[in-house]
Simulated scan of single mutants.
Amino acid sequence: MEKLNKTLDEWKAMLDPEQYNVCRLKGTERPFSGKYNATKTDGVYHCVCCNEPLFDSSAKFDSGCGWPSFYQPIGDSAMIEIRDVSHGMVRTEVVCAKCEAHLGHVFPDGPPPTGLRYCINSVCLDLVPRT
C-alpha cells in the first residue's frame, strides 16, 4: 500500500476542527457523542482522511464503551498498531495504514472470534452503506 503523506497544514485545510484534532493530533471524541456509536447501517467504514476501507459493519458490536466497536478490521493490512503509554496507561493505538490517521485503540476484551475490541472514534470514519 502506498502511503499518503500530507503536511499538518494540508490536513488542517481538508478536515473539520474535530476531525483534525482526533485524526492528526491524537485527540478523542466524548463517549456516546459520535454519529456511529449506535448505528446499525450495513456497509463499510472508511478512513475520513484517505477513504481507505477499515471495518465492515458485520464486525461491529455494542460494547457499551461509548465509541463504535469492532472485533476485527477489514483486512490485516488496514491499520498499524502502536504501543501507547500516554495518560499513565499502556494501550495499543491503531492508526490507518495508508495515512497514519489516529483512529482509536484496540483492547483484548472483545467478543469471539477474535477477542479484540477496536474502540474507534466516529469522527475518524465515513460509513459507505451497502446498496
Score class of each variant (00 low, 15 high):
D62G: 08
Y71C: 10
P53D: 06
L103I: 09
G34S: 07
V95K: 15
G110N: 03
C65R: 03
D62M: 04
L8W: 08
D9A: 11
C96W: 01
F55C: 03
L125Y: 05
Y20G: 08
D126E: 14
D62R: 08
F70D: 06
E2V: 15
A101W: 06
K60Y: 03
G64E: 04
R30T: 13
V123W: 04
L103R: 06
H105K: 04
N37S: 12
G88M: 02
Y36D: 06
K26R: 12
S63H: 02
V128Y: 00
C23F: 10
G75R: 14
V128F: 00
F61T: 12
Y71D: 15
F55Y: 14
S86F: 05
K3M: 14
V44G: 06
L54P: 00
G115H: 02
P111T: 13
T114N: 09
V94P: 00
D16V: 01
K40M: 11
T114G: 11
R117F: 02
W67V: 13
V48A: 15
R24C: 05
D42Q: 14
I82C: 12
G75W: 01
P68N: 06
G64T: 00
V106P: 01
R91T: 04
P108S: 12
K6I: 04
S57K: 10
A97W: 09
G75M: 04
C65Q: 07
R83W: 05
S122H: 08
C23H: 05
D76E: 13
I120K: 05
V90W: 00
R83C: 11
R91W: 07
R117T: 10
K98D: 10
L127Q: 09
A101E: 10
M1H: 06
